[in-house]
Write a protein that binds this DNA or RNA. Sequence first.
DNA 1: CTGCAATTGAAAATGGTTATCAAAATCATC
DNA 2: GATGATTTTGATAACCATTTTCAATTGCAG
Lengths: 149, 149
Amino acid sequence: MHKATEQLSVYLAGQGLKSTRQRDRILDVFVSAGRHLSAEELYLLIRKTDRRIGYATVYRTLKLLAGAGLAHERRFEDGITRFEYDAAEGHHDHLICTRCGRIIEFENEQIEDLQLRVAKKNRFQVQTHKLELYGLCEGCQSKKGKTEL
Amino acid sequence: MHKATEQLSVYLAGQGLKSTRQRDRILDVFVSAGRHLSAEELYLLIRKTDRRIGYATVYRTLKLLAGAGLAHERRFEDGITRFEYDAAEGHHDHLICTRCGRIIEFENEQIEDLQLRVAKKNRFQVQTHKLELYGLCEGCQSKKGKTEL
DNA sequence: CTGCAATTGAAAATGGTTATCAAAATCATC
DNA sequence: GATGATTTTGATAACCATTTTCAATTGCAG
Ligand SMILES: [Mn+2]
Ligand SMILES: [Mn+2]
Ligand SMILES: [Zn+2]
Ligand SMILES: [Zn+2]
């Protein structure tokens, strides 16, 4: 039993919720993928080995995982909600290629500090934040053509 | 004729597009509002003095204004697209109150510089970026209750 | 004016996501 | 292991912001 599966069990038990084949399966495929996934992408991945899982269940379970702290919800500019497995590594932000969709992650303590300073100056109490840089990844800078996002 | 109206005329002429009562009206109300507006909010504002304007036209015209460089499209976490009039003052980012929806704008050159440094380190060519801090504005920090966004 | 391309408004379509609800599964208790 | 209250599931409909459609109207060059 992986760490994630264990964590989900604990969460479900604590909330008086039930452990199901679907929830275990969805979490397993989600964690294995190891990347940002939309509900549909995850649904299609799971379908490859298990056709007895409904679309709505994937949506519901992703929300559940987010509530359990196992997934983070991300909404980039294309309007599609994606989730990423979060093994509690800590916060990070994103570089998003507008041509191929590639996502690069980064952390920058200096920027985080400056954000808090800006908030303080405006007497604003920060709960969360979002920093996304859109542009061309290394591989896409040489190619020609229109963007994807 | 305001600066914005003038700018729209020039844009339309240059693109072989036509000047219409609707476009002038929408731009006028949009600029006068002086804040971030969704298509629906703008539609309702216009309705107060002119009932001969369609919903679709407001959507289309906002896109047009964005293309003309007169409006900036913003998508915050509530999923509704908003537009703000941009009198070419330059770029800014946002603090967004999750309780009352208030939007505070800020500019921070240091953060912008650090963003470019992060991009460079990842050999990423930045086109645009988005920095949003979500939390409680001064007035909402004292009050109790649930959030809006 | 005239003619034609651009524009409009009402309504239907779209697309991602959520709600509904009857059937099935889970699990504490016997 | 059987029972039964409660939760979960899957198919489908509903939702809702936005876009598309298309016939009627309008702008404007000639
Ligand atoms: Mn990430
Ligand atoms: Mn703004
Ligand atoms: Zn790329
Ligand atoms: Zn507030």
